[in-house]
Amino acid sequence: MANLFSKNYNKRTRFTRVCIGEAIFSLMDKKDYKDIKISDIVKRAGVSRMTFYHYYETKEEALADFFHEIVAGYIRECISEKEKVGEFHQLSSIVHALRYFDRYASFILKLVDARLYYIVIEAMNAYMKNRIMPRYKIPVYELYFYGGALLNVFVMWELNGKKESPEEIAGMVAGSIRTTDRE
Rank of each mutant, 00 (worst) to 15 (best):
A2G: 10
N3M: 15
L4R: 04
S6H: 09
Y9G: 04
T13R: 10
R14A: 15
C19M: 11
L27S: 00
M28Y: 04
K31D: 07
K37L: 14
I38F: 02
I38S: 03
D40N: 08
D40K: 04
V42L: 01
K43L: 10
A45K: 01
G46I: 01
V47I: 05
V47W: 00
S48G: 05
S48K: 02
S48C: 01
Y53M: 07
Y56N: 00
E57I: 09
T58Y: 07
K59A: 04
E60W: 05
A72R: 12
G73K: 05
Y74G: 02
E77R: 10
S80I: 14
E81W: 09
E83C: 12
E83L: 13
K84E: 15
V85W: 03
V85G: 05
G86S: 08
E87Y: 08
E87Q: 12
H89N: 12
Q90E: 15
L91P: 11
S93H: 14
H96A: 10
A97W: 06
L98K: 03
Y100H: 04
D102T: 13
R103S: 12
S106M: 12
I108R: 12
D113N: 11
I119Q: 00
V120I: 13
V120T: 06
M124H: 05
M124N: 08
A126N: 08
A126W: 09
Y127R: 02
M128D: 04
K129I: 09
R131S: 14
V140Y: 05
F145V: 00
A149P: 08
N152H: 12
F154D: 02
L159E: 13
N160D: 15
K162W: 07
K162I: 03
K163I: 08
E164K: 13
E164T: 09
S165A: 05
P166L: 06
E168Y: 09
I169K: 03
V173I: 13
A174K: 09
G175D: 07
S176D: 12
I177D: 04
D181F: 07
R182N: 11
E183I: 15
E183L: 15
